[in-house]
Design a protein around this nucleic acid. Sequence first.
RNA 1: GCGGGAGUAGCCAAGACCGGUCAAAGGCGGAGGACUUAAGAUCCUCUCUCGUAGGAGUCCAGGGGUUCAAGUCCCCUCUCCCGCACCA
Length: 967
Amino acid sequence: MSESAKIEKKWQKQWEKDRIFEVDPDPNRKKFFLTVPYPYPNGALHMGHGRTYTVGDLIARYKRMQGFNVLYPMASHITGTPIFGMVDRVKRGDEDAIEQYRRDLRVYLDSEEEVNAQVKKFTDPWATVLFFTETISADFKALGYSIDWRRKFTTGDDIYNRFITWQYQKLMDSGYIQKGAHPLLYCPNCGNPVGEDDIKEGNTAKVKEFTSLKYPFEDGFLVAATLRPETTFGITNLWINPTAKYVKADVNGELWIVSSTAAEKLKLQAKEVKILDTFPGSKIVGKSCQTIHDGRNIPILPADFVDVDNATGVVYSVPGHAPFDYIALRDLWEDPTELQAYGISADDVRGIDVVIMIEIEGGSEFLTKDVVEKLGVSSQKDKEKLEEATQEVYKAEFYEGVMMDNCGPFSGRQVSGVKDDIIKWLKSENRGDVFYEPDERPVVCKCGTDVQVAVLAGQWFLDYESPGWKDKAWDALKMMGIIPENFRIMFESTFDWLAQRPCARRRGIGTPLPFDPEWIIEALSDSTIYMAFYTIAHKINQNKLKPEQLTLSFFDYVFLGKGKAEKVAQETEVSSDILNSMRDEFLYWYPNDQRHTAPSHISNHLSFAIFHHAAIFPKKHWIQCISLNEHMNMEGGKMSKSKGNTLPLGEMPKKYGADVFRTYAVSAAEPGSIMDWRERDVPAVRNRIRQFSEIMKKYSTKTPKIYRKKDKPTGITRWILSRVNSIVQECTDYMDNFRIRDYAITVMSEMIRTVNHYVNRTEVSKEERDGTMAYVCDRWVRLIAPMTPHVSEEFWSKMNQDGYVSLADWPKADKKLIDPSAEMAHTVVESTVRDIREIVKLLKDKKASAVHIYVAPEWMFQAMNSIRTKEISLIVGDIMKHLMSNPDFRTHGKQVKGIVDRIAKENGLWDHSMNAKEEMAVLKDSATYISSEIGMDVTIHDAAKPDYDPQNKARFALPGRVSLLLE
RNA sequence: GCGGGAGUAGCCAAGACCGGUCAAAGGCGGAGGACUUAAGAUCCUCUCUCGUAGGAGUCCAGGGGUUCAAGUCCCCUCUCCCGCACCA
């Protein structure tokens, strides 16, 4: 085991032994309650998960050092089918799945025998949950997360089920839960709704809603389905595939003619279907039916393009607006011979008038015809071009079209807004219905059966559109902090479209619906307010409360303060002391001050959490803030177990070290953007931690001394004291604003550079350097501790500090030590060195051995300062006028012009010392340093009266921009 | 389709809200130097082009515009990524 691994283990054990992250309410301290969503233990977590939890821990540790009583808890989410799915695969002997688990297991188990023995246990769901729950918490501990583990639970625990039971009873009481029919993808063979995991092919398929139109025919209806019901005003005929199988069926008491496959689908879509007769399409071709809007008789014509497996297999024809229909009709006009078999004369067909019922202002009169001709569609078999034409016509007519005056009550309306009203009208006339299809084909279940859309009656759903609910949720969102703020708009659009959502399934782990126990509350619906459960979970366990004691009035009292403790105690046999301590603990920790996770949860989990909090808790207990960080990629590609381009999270501390992983996870990208894990960048992170360690090793145990002005320290000591305190301030600001990457870069790279520069300056005495550096180390170890807690803890203990750095005070910037003139001086010296180097480079092989530095005359400093304090606009004339009005400057007229030109060119003023004397002192102070940097003798001159200036360089000197002569 | 986002030097990635201090932080990669018997590690310097004096030129997907001034603001175009529900 490496040295750093030993250190990490050592401190993790110490923390656990001293229970420093186990927190209880302390009325004397401000609290901070941070949550990150609990993981799903259906396998080992991978490194990508580590980013979010690490950021969470960084925040927890920062807040803790700031003096907050911080609660950062964790649990396990096991609701739903994934665990079952996994158990099934192992039982079935699915080699791919088993191999994947073996890979996970090898991280935790030493021998192949143990691995295989454990895989066998995965046939038991609870053994599986238990195993991965343990490994995940071991992973989290190995990464140094400051979690209060006493409060852990799983969502399959009895006590959790009681909590969710209470939640759903509350939602029911508020009228937010309803029962109804809802379309979903369904496998007729398995008899179950299918989720993404159950689909073999086409797993992005969604439910698409068609409007079915019932055209009166004989004693019933020919039922056509469409996505554009508004076009029924342009109907000229119906299309039937003459060779396909159709049925006449009793559908909910009406006689419908649809294709045979459509009849089967209708059965799944909550219709009572009795098939009365089966016949080929040819049987009805040639007959006529009536239109809906004006009751005209229109013919039923044959068409090959009609696909009876799509929708109802009956198509109504709108040649004016649908390229398919237009072409099919045109084909018949050109060759009507086929029609004779159905007793339709050529004249009948040629007599069909195309109806135009949508117009586009300034557009073509017969857009469909134009588009078809433009694309050169040859016949109805030319499917690709017809699709293209359909898209083009639809797009144009939908966005720009207006219903013409042959559209009854809808005349004059925009096409884009009329669809819903047309559907309403059709339904009110009993001529409209809905028909569902998947929006893509094929969609195949893992069992090999075609997936259909089913409308299951008795489905329970959360109605996010229930009166009042959304308003409350909006209120909650408005008062909530969202960081980064640009994610707020994603919440807003989610809130807009959130409507009814089924909340229970027939299978899986979870809590039965209290009012219909056949149904299990599904995973995203039982994880919305559980942050509240953390506040009491450990007390339920410590006091050995039984699930049946956790009644509705128990939770009502603890979470809502309803009822009297004595009465609830009587009912539940939980003593009122215990009840009150739970109530107090809940009141202490709640609300959840910050919830941190990935943006992919915005459209579901996070929005649900906001809604459910708004539904159940009073305003003061709503979530205060949501922070987000994006996912992690691996070497430029998306991480996924199946791709094999991922490492188990448990591997990270072993392979790289916890502090290294944490630093990478915080610093490699902004929270809002995707992070790329690049193996070859890891050594750089490790090196920086090592550099930090080296410096700490050397100086942290010295006796700190702060050299204040009265101690007359060297300029560079004043500089580092100023820099370090500025950095303390910057880091605090960064952390407060969730700019964690800037924090990481500043506290690592910037600090290392600063400190290295300081310790390399030879003009500082050993005593002064040691004392200063010991002070710097004390600031630094605290600043860096939230990110690299283990190595920080190690040095903290070596510094003979009390307790843990994890619990130490976050440093405050010592404003008295922040010294702009010291930092300015440093800038002047550094830019001087840079200038000399540049000249040296240009001199090429000509060697210089001495440099003369000329500091600008005092009046120039005064001139610069007078412009600065005047805050006049940077227009040449104005500055000129301002300076020339002062006789002290006017005597240097020509050089004043030079300064002003330079200001104009630079678009402003630049940094320099306060006056010539100071700039001179600074450079003299740093002369040995400059000399050692460039390997030349250094002489400093006053440009006003240079004692040596053979090339007349002195006149070019400006404040902060010394003039140089190299010899 | 609806909604969100991105395009910055060899690569990764800040800067954009709030225009000037931006040839553009930081890292990787590359070059040179210090240290070292050597390798490695570490530290320092350089890394758009031109330039024998600290300067100049060109640049932030492409095109146009606003402005004294644009990576940053506005418009258009191109390319890429993500979410859209019953799935955790």
